[in-house]
Structures are given as C-alpha cells and as structure tokens.
Design a protein around this nucleic acid. Structure first.
Length: 107
DNA sequence: GTCGTGACAGTAG
DNA sequence: ACTACTGCCACGA
C-alpha cells in the first residue's frame, strides 16, 4: 500500500540513486526535487533506508558532511573524485548536482 | 493520539 | 561567528 512512508521514501531514494558519481545534492535540493521541503524527512530516510542508496552524495546546504558519517563520506569522495575543499567539505560550488543537470552542460 | 527526536534549510537578531 | 524559531517528514515511546 502506498503509505506516506513508502511514497516519500521511494521518491527520496529515487532521486538520491539518480545522483551520478562525483556530484552531490543537498538535503533541501533532494526534498525540492520531490516537490517537498522536508530536508529533515530526507535525512530520516537516509538514516533508515540510506543503506540502499549513496547517502554520501547527499550533503548539507553548505557542503558540510554528516557529523556522524563525514569520515565515510570523505573517503567515498576521494574514490568518486568529488571536488573537495581544503576545509574538508565538498565544493558545493562545483559538486552540486540537480536532476535537470543530467544533460551535464560541461564536465 | 501526543510529544520528542533526528544524517536539515532558511531567515532573523 | 552563534543561537533561536519555524517548516517538513517519519519513527519510537
């Protein structure tokens, strides 16, 4: 049954799973991509179902990594080649991705 | 059925 | 730079 959980979760997982390697999306961006502002809801979905999607490609609006998993995420960025900043965060300026950017104007 | 909490965002002071 | 409030969603007690 399409409970509110499965519906919201399905959309979040779908968007997160659609993020290509080397790119990242902020919680608010993911929420906006599914037509909601539940940045918090997205984080909750990650906490419960994040094991099924590249949660490390989801970062905070300022590019900061999750306080509890920044170490894992940072390692993944090195493997994916995500633009990192000397501050230890992601260069959101270049790594921010959007479902409409699938065309990738220019790498 | 209400309250509190959490991998958040944005604005205001 | 910081804290505080609000908005949104789901889960646990």
């Amino acid at each position: 049954m399409a409970q509110p959980t499965d519906d919201f979760v399905s959309r979040v997982l779908d968007v997160v799973a659609a993020i290509p390697a080397g790119r990242v999306m902020s919680y608010g961006d993911v929420a906006a991509a599914i037509g909601s502002r539940a940045a918090r809801g997205v984080g909750q979905v990650m906490a419960y179902y994040g094991g099924e999607v590249p949660w490390w490609r989801v970062v905070r609006a300022d590019g900061s990594l999750p306080p509890s998993h920044d170490d894992e995420a940072r390692q993944a960025y090195l493997e994916e080649g995500t633009p990192l900043r000397p501050s230890g965060s992601v260069d959101v300026r270049k790594a921010v991705w959007s479902p409409e950017d699938i065309h990738s104007p220019h790498p």
